[in-house]
């Protein structure tokens, strides 16, 4: 019988395998809620963080496991930003690092990656890989250049600057592209990581137009993937909102699989991607995984699979990050739907 890790690799290679792989965490907070601990409590304790996270992944039997999800604000903190730990989710950025083009010059990526926080994050990844022993597929989670730009400048200012200050946007995106690449390379120094998971929530189909997506999002994801290609890792991209009108642009980036929001019709996405890019998704994390019964969650997950799993190249994922109130029983039912489906 194939391992979870092999099943995931088959999906990324568009090979038919004995079952569909499933993952549950696009962000990283839900396992900590389930375990009744907070990330802040666990800082300075990489083995405890990894164990808490991985224990939940084992219990729900996820094939796809992320490291670093829910901790992306730590990278901003390492650059000199201020973050705030909150009880109901991932740490938040509490002050913006950039107000003008000159502020970008003051940021030092190499120095940031030498910070204690980043060493801590890499140690969590190392410990997760050790606990995993090659069974599940481990992906390093990070942010795409456009979303990082929003974290540094503020999404509102970034949005306005797309029209009013193109020079700032270009300079900032060049910086965040370097930052994204450097972050992934830093984390990929851990042996046993299978892939990179790039989250780009601010490039949501509800936020930016297809035109801005093509100009300010696509070239930078392409560049990140081009520079990381020598590592030979699997790659998964998640973008929030309805991105149906721009799915056709993703093939050129070199991404292997795209994770879509529950707003996207999976069958239509499958048709547009046409086997050139893999697809994952997309049960609604609140209105399905949190609010329905386990049996109903199972049925909804099967609908996703039925819509998009034919011919391989599919992984079952929630359409966005799990809600803190999602029950473990429901999440287990979600994964079971994939594991019980036979190709």
């Amino acid at each position: 019988m194939a391992t979870s890790r092999e099943i995931v690799a088959d999906a990324f290679a568009h090979k038919k395998s004995e079952r569909i792989p499933a993952g549950v965490c696009l962000g990283g907070s839900w396992p900590f809620f389930i375990e009744g601990v907070t990330l802040e409590e666990l800082l300075e304790q990489p083995p405890t963080v990894a164990a808490a996270f991985y224990r939940v992944m084992e219990r729900v039997d996820a094939d796809f496991v992320t490291v670093g999800a829910g901790a992306t604000a730590l990278l901003i903190e390492a650059l000199g930003g201020e973050i705030k730990f909150i009880s109901n989710g991932a740490p938040e950025i509490s002050s913006l690092l950039i107000a003008s083009e000159t502020d970008i010059d003051a940021l030092n990526i190499s120095k940031a990656l030498k910070s204690e926080r980043m060493a801590w994050l890499r140690e969590v990844a190392r410990e997760t890989v050790r606990l995993n022993q090659g069974r599940r597929s481990i992906f390093v989670s990070g942010r795409a250049p456009f979303t990082l730009a929003g974290q540094l400048l503020g999404l509102e200012t970034l949005s306005k600057s797309l029209y009013k200050n193109k020079a700032l946007v270009e300079k900032l995106l060049a910086f965040t592209t370097d930052l994204s690449v450097a972050y992934y390379e830093f984390m990929l120094e851990v042996d046993g990581i299978d892939g990179i998971f790039i989250a780009d929530p601010s490039a949501s189909g509800d936020v930016v137009s297809s035109r801005h997506f093509e100009a300010a999002v696509i070239p930078h994801i392409t560049e990140v993937l081009r520079r990381l290609a020598p590592h030979g890792k699997l790659s998964l991209l998640h973008i929030c909102g309805d991105i149906t009108d721009r799915l056709h642009l993703l093939e050129q980036t070199g991404i292997q699989m795209v994770s879509v929001d529950s707003k996207v019709n999976l069958a239509e996405a499958k048709r547009i991607l046409n086997g050139k890019v893999g697809l994952s998704g997309n049960a609604n994390p609140v209105f399905v995984i949190e609010e329905l019964t386990a049996a109903e969650v199972y049925a909804e997950a099967r609908k996703c699979i039925d819509a998009a799993a034919f011919n391989g190249g599919f992984m079952l994922l929630p359409g966005c990050d799990l809600s803190a109130k999602a029950s473990e029983e429901n999440v287990r039912a979600f994964v079971r739907a994939a594991h019980e489906w036979r190709c």
Binding site: L155, S159, K160, Y163, V207, S209, H212, D242
Partner: peptide, 14 residues
């Protein structure tokens, strides 16, 4: 109608 997006709204509002 998804003809305008957030940057457009902010631009028009300004």
């Amino acid at each position: 109608k998804s003809e305008y997006f957030i940057p457009d709204l902010l631009d028009c509002a300004a």
